[in-house]
Design a protein around this nucleic acid. Structure first.
Lengths: 339, 339
DNA sequence: CTGAAAGCGCTTACAG
DNA sequence: CTGAAAGCGCTTACAG
């Protein structure tokens, strides 16, 4: 069980050349069936482990993909398991294709100073997946990056970079339709419209539903949930509450429900509330939240498929892929009360 | 900005040798200050990126560490962000030392069939961190693995493999002391004693506290929380409730609180309950849970430091490192009621 | 201070 | 079917 057994060692053992050993172990043409079997058997016996580095060097490919998550989405504060779950799914999918995902947390300083990850400068990865919205200026800086890259869970219209996103627009649209079907006409939205493209699109889907139903958008009902750094802020409620709120995510819906309960409102009797994401906050909220489930696995699958294709086919562009979510019906919505 | 600029290209550009370029870029001795500056400048100008593969191959080291998490700890079911958080901390720490963490989810089939991860057979990693308890037989199989390895968050007495764990024993001991100080004499424990070493140690810390206070252990108060596959089961409560329960983790404490509330008990007035981990379940439970905070960052730091040392110093052994947790006081404990 | 030579462990043409 | 030669992009002695 020596650790540094090479093909040459196996070759010497059998009195053949290392070329033949290479062919045999890789199941390539040009080795007799018997010799191939013999070689494999000896390799096994000698405890041979294939040295990927040599192949990588020959090809100039690492078979690693960098997955970059901005630090602000990863705080050790309980939340955001969404991104880690996504990373996990990606790691699994990549492995199926013979690739490996290297996680890099992009800290705020590097993001501000436009420092590219070291894994890039050391040629440790063949491509990048950016998971979670990054700064505008950093996105511009990415023009310099000469390997394939994909945005995941956000996109940028300026930069011509392929993206895989959840169908935020349609999800919020469907959700709002659902509320309207329940008689709601005064519906608020909770989220900072200038924070991320996801929130923006969810807002626009919400707005589209209002437009279709000829319901006027009341900006007094649009409530900011976070500051420009993405940190949650205290929710400022309007004097008069709408009969329902569409929240841009479950966590904020959770905050809102708790805040309203403290103020003496009953949910959903006095106010219906819906979330987005179907993360842990959807089920721990009392009442449990009607929400949109993001299809993490499908998103990971699409992302992996696309990035592998880009690596193998000359970085071809595919544009933007929207992965549909699914409406999950729970207990935070009721028919609008007669007033 | 050609992508495949090599040291040779830089050398040719300047009419020097690639050896000199190598020395200059690595800040080694033997290049004049002016030439070094010149070389660095030209490298920058040509968009040179260092090719780590060549160095890796020369050294026979990848500077990658495999982090293995058994699948059962990662289910996409909301929970277990603990392990992913730990992985994230490890990835960060490794990067500080010039290493990168490759996540591999060990699925049940591979675990049962004793298949070693492909990253091992392809020599893609220099060492392994096993995060979360694995099968006994798989642990035995690890004897064959000829690179450094560490167990994280569990250990095995048979296998002589170094481990970093949270101080389960002392944490539960302290917690139980705390309950006893509040007048509790009838205290239950919730957890399957045969499931993991963590649960066992927490139980034993709990038991030590009872012994020290001359309180008899009542097995009717020891409640199983999961089956042998680690899946949670329905909690079977004793006919007469103790005045307090030490739960082996926050999630189970959360279940227990909810179950007792449904049965009409008030927490903590009728029964005090404490958890372990200080994960999201500790704060979402109503009342919030008094618990032990596991120091994820410190554990990640110790693990990384140890594994890097093992890689660099001939796999030297360091035994077992216990990282102390911290008692977090919340609202799920009260003085025992007079009966 | 500078560089020619050899080598890390494979694979890819190409020749026999 | 089998193998000698060259090369992937560096670094490490060693010589000048």
């Amino acid at each position: 069980m020596k650790s540094n057994v090479t093909m040459k060692d196996i070759a010497d053992q059998l009195g053949v050349s290392s070329v033949t050993v290479s062919k045999a172990l890789n199941d390539k043409e040009g080795v007799s069936v018997e010799l191939k079997a013999k070689i494999k058997q000896v390799a096994e016996g000698m405890g041979y482990r294939y040295n990927t580095l040599a192949k990588q060097m020959k090809e100039g490919l690492t078979y690693n993909v960098g997955v970059i998550i901005p630090e602000r989405f990863t705080g050790l504060t309980q939340t955001q398991s969404f991104y880690l779950n996504m990373y996990q799914s990606i790691a699994k999918e990549l492995e199926k294709s013979g690739y490996y995902g290297i996680l890099h947390i992009l800290n705020r300083a590097d993001e501000d100073k436009l420092n590219l990850p070291r894994i890039y400068n050391e040629k440790r990865v063949d491509a990048f997946i950016f998971l979670g919205q990054i700064n505008k200026t950093y996105i511009e800086k990415l023009q310099d990056v000469e390997i394939p890259k994909i945005f995941l869970d956000f996109y940028d219209e300026q930069a011509d970079i392929d993206a895989v996103i959840t169908d935020n627009f349609y999800g919020a649209y469907e959700m709002t339709n659902y509320l309207i079907k329940h008689g709601h006409r005064e519906i608020g939205f909770v989220g900072n419209l200038y924070s991320t493209s996801s929130i923006q699109d969810r807002f626009l889907g919400f707005y589209k539903s209002l437009l279709e139903h000829k319901i006027e958008l009341n900006y007094a009902y649009v409530i900011k949930d976070r500051n420009e750094h993405g940190a949650f802020i205290d929710l400022e409620l309007p004097d008069k509450l709408p009969s329902a709120f569409v929240c841009n995510c479950d966590q904020v819906a959770h905050h809102l429900v708790n805040k309203l309960k403290v103020l003496g409102y009953r949910i959903p009797e006095d106010c219906s509330i819906v979330g987005f994401d179907n993360d842990i906050y959807a089920t721990i909220t009392e009442p449990s939240l009607t929400t949109i489930e993001v299809n993490i696995q499908e998103m990971a699958k699409q992302t992996t498929k696309s990035i592998v294709e880009k690596i193998q086919n000359n970085n071809q562009s595919f544009g933007r892929i929207s992965v549909k979510g699914k409406l999950i019906y729970r207990n935070s919505v009721t028919k609008v009360a007669e007033r």
